[in-house]
Amino acid sequence: MTGEEVPPEARQLHERSLVVDAHNDLLMVCSRQPPARQGAFFRQTWLPQLRAGGVDVQVLPVFLEPEFRPEGALRQTLKMIETAWRIAEACPDEVRICLTGADLERARADGVLALIIALEGCEAVGLDVGLFETLYRLGVRMASFTHFGRTMLADGSAENDTGGRLTSAGVDAVAECERLGIVLDVSHLGAASTDHLLELARRPVVASHSSSFAVRAHHRNLTDEVMRAIAATGGVVGINVLAQFVDGHRHTVDRVADHLDHAASVVGADHVGLGPDFIKEVSDGLLRVDELAWGDRKPREYVPGLEGPAGLPRLTAELLRRGWAERDIRQVLGLSFHDVLVRELGKPG
Rank of each mutant, 00 (worst) to 15 (best):
G308T: 05
D296I: 03
H271M: 11
L242Q: 11
L242F: 09
A243Q: 04
E318W: 14
R220Q: 06
H262M: 12
D258S: 05
Y302C: 03
D254F: 14
R203L: 09
L306E: 01
Q331E: 11
K280G: 08
V226H: 07
E291M: 06
G308R: 07
H262A: 09
G308N: 10
A232V: 09
L198C: 04
D290E: 05
D224L: 11
G234C: 07
V267M: 12
V237L: 11
L200T: 11
G295D: 02
H196F: 14
D258C: 10
T316C: 12
N240E: 10
I279K: 11
A243L: 03
F278V: 04
D296P: 04
L312D: 13
R297A: 07
L319Y: 15
V256S: 03
E307W: 05
L242M: 06
A263C: 13
A243H: 06
M227Q: 07
L274V: 08
R321I: 03
V246I: 09
V206Q: 04
R327D: 14
R203N: 08
S212E: 01
G323D: 05
R216K: 11
G275N: 10
D328E: 13
H219W: 02
E301P: 03
L292Q: 14
G238T: 03
E281N: 14
E225L: 12
L292E: 09
Y302W: 05
L319W: 15
Q331S: 15
S210L: 01
L200R: 15
G305V: 01
D270A: 09
I230P: 00
G285F: 02
E301S: 11
E225S: 15
V215G: 01
L315H: 12
D277S: 13
L200D: 12
G285S: 04
L200A: 09
A214G: 11
H249Y: 11
G273R: 14
H249D: 06
H259D: 06
P313D: 06
G311Y: 05
H249I: 04
V215Q: 02
L197A: 07
V272T: 10
G268L: 11
P313M: 06
A214C: 09
D270H: 08
A325K: 13
F213I: 03
G308E: 13
V256D: 00
P309D: 10
T252L: 15
V289P: 08
R300C: 06
P313H: 09
R322K: 14
D224S: 09
V267D: 07
R321S: 13
D328V: 01
A264F: 01
L286N: 13
D224E: 14
L242D: 02
A214P: 10
T223E: 01
A214I: 07
L274Q: 14
A263I: 06
V236L: 06
L320Y: 15
R203V: 04
A317R: 14
P304M: 02
